[in-house]
Amino acid sequence: MTLDQKILWTRISLILFGLGMWEGFCVCGIIDPYFFGQPTSICQDLWSMIIDGSIFFHTWITLFEAMAGFFLGAVFGCVAALILGMSPFWAKVLDPLIMVVYGIPRIALAPLFILWFGLGLASKIVFAFTLVFFLVFFNTFAGLKNMNQGMINTIRVMGAGRRQIMHKVILPGISPWVMAGLKSGMGMSLLGALVGEYIGGNAGLGWMINSAAGLFETNRVFSAIFALALLVMATNAVFNKIERRVLKWRPENINL
């Protein structure tokens, strides 16, 4: 057995052991499945939602809201940072305003977004957007502030214009920073979509968790959490793949 296989099997055994303990406690009556759920019942519930397709529908809703908010936040965050990075005047003018807006706990704004954009997808997308925007914005801006002046100078001396410097030096140079912003933005966009659904919605995993908890359907809550965990794993895997491709020039192992 190779080390990788060993790791995999140990991992699977650990998970099975945990689930077994949970199931055992329920069967022996040590914990009450009504409040704590029970693995076999959760499986049954999940299976029923796979059969009628409802789990896919709600997962898709949440994913769609998160991704839409993510892309809007990423694009606007990046562009805003580039514009302010290039114009110190506007950066100075807007700096306190940005900090004030950033300082407002966004969750306090969520009810407003529901009022303005309704119970449907739009309010969740806007909410996810406000979370992602600032993350990407601050990261990109920090990346610009950390650009190597010498690098820009050598290329400028070769006769590069503003556009060429932007394309060939600045954009690739800030890419690790932008990627770091996008990575945390990704998690935040899901959180935004979820919280939006909690506060007011009629579909999605957040809505499912909230409404099931209200009815004491603990197993349903766990089903939704399970779907959510899979969703997070999948989006992270996709993102890591993209990140490795984009940043393949970075030395991989850094010993701390």
Binding site: N148, G150, M151, N153, T154, R156, V157, M158, G159, A160, K168, V169, P172, G173, S175, W249, R250
Partner: peptide, 19 residues
């Protein structure tokens, strides 16, 4: 006016994302 001279600065200014 640029483009007439090659410049090598003290620090390492190779573009790390390029081969």
């Amino acid at each position: 006016t640029f483009g007439w001279a090659g410049y090598m600065s003290q620090s390492d200014t190779l573009l790390p994302w390029r081969t």
